[in-house]
Write a protein that binds this DNA or RNA. Structure first.
Length: 157
DNA sequence: GCCACCGGTGGC
DNA sequence: GCCACCGGTGGC
């Protein structure tokens, strides 16, 4: 079982490519939007991804991308909650590739950095509370695959 | 003054 | 040892 997301050099050092591995042919398929990626991820265990789930794709088609060091890969967790409507989830890679920071931007432009902050935000905004709970946020930060970190990255000691 | 970014740590 | 969490700050 694998869920993958991927970072190549991009403005803001944010994750810019979302992909999942087919459970039957093991090829990687690029998922065009974060929203669809999160939809697939949210039910990944009970509803594993296969190529045929995508329109016009089957296991006969070549994979979209390969797991290699032409880009940096990070490994996600299955069955994380979908980002609540109106919020935007961001994963930002640190310059030294040591880790990713996870943020949610709220509908009114605030930044949330932890479940505790999300809880406090919901307390302040009771109108959100009827549809959203703290468990709808996951600040899990995907693991960076060492073998895909560019050779010229300077690691801090 | 803000905020993107980083460093440190407490709890597991 | 890891990582969730948050304080601090440098650059704007």
């Amino acid at each position: 079982m694998k869920v993958g997301i991927q970072k190549s050099t991009s403005p803001g050092n944010s994750i810019n490519t979302w992909s999942v591995q087919c459970g039957e042919c093991f090829k990687w398929r690029v998922i065009p939007t974060q929203e669809l990626y999160e939809e697939i991820r949210s039910r990944f265990i009970e509803d594993p991804f296969v190529c045929s789930k995508l329109p016009t794709v089957s296991c006969d088609e070549p994979g979209d991308i390969e797991y290699d060091n032409t880009r940096t890969w990070v490994i996600d967790k299955p069955n994380l909650p979908k980002t609540p409507p109106g919020f935007k989830k961001r994963l930002v890679l640190r310059k030294d590739y040591s880790k990713l920071d996870c943020y949610y931007d709220t509908p009114n432009g605030k930044k949330l950095r932890s479940t505790a902050e999300a809880s406090r935000f919901l307390d302040k905004h009771p109108e959100c509370k009827k549809d959203i709970s703290p468990s709808d946020f996951s600040f899990f930060s995907p693991k960076i695959m060492e073998d895909t970190i560019p050779a010229n990255v300077v690691k801090k000691i």
